[in-house]
């Protein structure tokens, strides 16, 4: 019934980390809405991040990065005192245009929805685990207690009801913006231009470019530093981009096997 016409626009997230206050409301809202189990009590000592990263039991993850930076100059502040900044960023499944997880899933449990998002059908997944190493962002994971793979669904059930995803709804500062991808990209371009104008020279968009290694992310980000600082790969590529070549090499190797066996048997009988 939620099947929409072919023209349903692609929906996604623009996460503007420059306004994230690290409140983790997104993490909690996601867990509440999706009944994601707790991960357990584990004090990590990585600033205020005790979640660590995305996984089967963490579909939104807020990163905290403490960095020393030169103090913005206060009318002749020549004390040379070093300031600091505290970057916070809420990470999520990227809902890649070319999604490796989906490509490699042998059961079809992972599928692309009418909103252009990537979702696991829990009743189909057989826990083969293939999607796990396939994801170039390290997002999807198999849940030990259950055997199946889990990740953000972009609140597929909510979209069907015309609701925005739980994490975006809970985000107080609109760091997480949900909407039509095209429109989000425009908004992001504008925001980036503003920040660059304001002297935030390290600001950049991540995953916005449809020509990148995964064909652009359905959930993309505005970052204030290099992606790896936030635990993101700097230049992810969907593994299946090389799949034809892999099959070719495997084919030649198979023929080599065939030839090798044949040659071995064609030889003189001892």
């Amino acid at each position: 019934m939620t099947q929409q016409d072919a023209h349903t626009p692609r929906m996604g997230f623009f996460t503007d980390t420059s306004v994230c206050i690290g409140c983790k409301a997104c993490e909690v809202a996601c867990k509440e809405w999706n009944a994601v189990p707790t991960k357990g009590m584990d004090l990590l000592g990585t600033s205020y991040d005790n979640t660590g990263g995305l996984g089967a039991d963490t579909w939104r993850h807020v990163a905290f990065v403490e960095q020393p930076v030169p103090v913005p100059d206060a009318a002749g502040s020549a004390q040379g005192a070093d300031g600091m900044r505290w970057l916070m960023a809420s990470d999520v499944c990227k809902h890649c245009t070319h999604a490796a997880c989906l490509d490699v899933c042998p059961t079809g449990a992972l599928f692309r929805t009418e909103y252009g998002t990537v979702v696991v059908q829990e009743d189909v997944c057989n826990g083969c685990g293939y999607c796990v190493p396939a994801c170039p962002y390290g997002v999807i994971e198999r849940r030990e207690s259950d055997g199946r793979a889990f990740k953000c669904t972009l609140c597929y059930d909510r979209l069907g009801e015309g609701l925005e995803p739980a994490c975006a709804k809970a985000c107080p500062t609109d760091s997480i913006q949900f909407g039509e991808l095209d429109e989000l990209r425009e908004r992001a371009d504008l925001r980036l231009a503003n920040l660059l104008d304001a002297g935030e020279s390290d600001a950049r968009l991540y995953g916005r470019d449809p020509d990148d290694g995964v064909g652009g992310d359905g959930a993309f980000f505005l970052l204030l530093d290099e992606p790896e600082v936030y635990g993101l790969p700097p230049d992810p590529v969907v593994t299946t981009r090389d799949l034809p070549s892999m099959w070719k090499h495997a084919g030649v190797a198979a023929l080599t096997v065939a030839a090798g066996v044949a040659a071995s048997f064609l030889g003189r009988r001892s």
Binding site: G22, C23, K24, E27, V28, K31, E32, T38, K39, G40, M41, D42, L43, Y48, N50, T51
Partner: peptide, 22 residues
């Protein structure tokens, strides 16, 4: 942010506790 005052409303909840577990 993750906890509330004397904790009755946050340390009793797993989803908040795991965010600041110590």
């Amino acid at each position: 942010t993750e906890h509330h005052t004397a904790g009755g409303m946050s340390r009793a909840l797993a989803r908040l506790s795991e965010l600041q577990p110590g």
